[in-house]
Amino acid sequence: MKTTRNSDIADRRTAATEAKAAQLQAYKAAQEAAAPLREAKQAERIAIAEAREARQAERRQAKLEEQNRAAAEAAEREAAAQSAARAETEAREQAEKNRITRVLEDEAARKAERDRKYAARKARQA
């Protein structure tokens, strides 16, 4: 009986080894059969990834162009503001110069009128 039992174990071991070998063969056959599909899916994934990268690069480029445009507009506004401020300052300075000139002319006219009155008074006294 003991040998029968051992032979049963040996048979089971052999059957298990053969089953494992059959599973391995089936797995290898399935892998070989699925290889073209797997390669196609991989190529599709690569194409999708490349398209995604292209879209991201396009978005980055558009964003950079928008930032450059905004910076240029800001620089133009700043230059216009500086120009307007400079023009306003120059106009204020010119108005101040004109006012000073008018004050000096008025003072000179008052002085001339005073001198004329003084000369007229001296002429009447003499």
Rank of each mutant, 00 (worst) to 15 (best):
M1G: 13
K2A: 15
K2C: 10
T3F: 09
T3C: 06
T3L: 13
T4M: 12
T4R: 14
R5V: 14
R5A: 14
S7A: 11
S7F: 13
I9S: 06
A10F: 05
D11G: 09
A15G: 01
A16K: 07
A16Q: 12
T17W: 02
T17A: 14
E18L: 09
A22I: 06
Q23I: 05
Q23K: 10
Q23S: 11
E32L: 04
A33K: 03
P36Y: 04
P36G: 00
R38A: 13
E39V: 03
K41G: 02
Q42C: 01
Q42I: 01
A43G: 06
R45W: 02
A47S: 15
I48S: 06
I48Q: 10
A49N: 04
E50K: 09
R52M: 12
E53H: 09
A57F: 10
E58K: 07
E58R: 10
R59E: 11
R59D: 07
R60H: 03
Q61F: 03
Q61L: 11
Q61R: 15
A62D: 08
K63C: 03
K63S: 08
K63G: 06
L64D: 14
L64Q: 15
E66M: 07
E66D: 15
Q67V: 10
N68M: 13
A70S: 12
A72D: 05
E73H: 05
A74Y: 01
A75P: 00
E78V: 01
A80R: 14
A80F: 01
A81P: 00
E88W: 03
E90H: 04
E93D: 08
E93A: 12
Q94V: 09
A95C: 04
A95Y: 06
K97R: 15
N98C: 04
N98I: 04
N98L: 13
N98R: 15
R99M: 06
T101S: 08
L104V: 07
E105T: 02
E105M: 01
D106K: 05
D106R: 12
E107T: 12
A108R: 07
A109K: 07
A109W: 03
R110L: 14
K111N: 11
K111Q: 14
A112F: 03
A112Q: 08
E113P: 00
E113M: 02
R114K: 10
R116L: 13
A119S: 09
A119K: 12
A119T: 11
K122W: 05
K122T: 10
A123V: 04
R124H: 06
Q125R: 15
Q125N: 10
A126G: 14
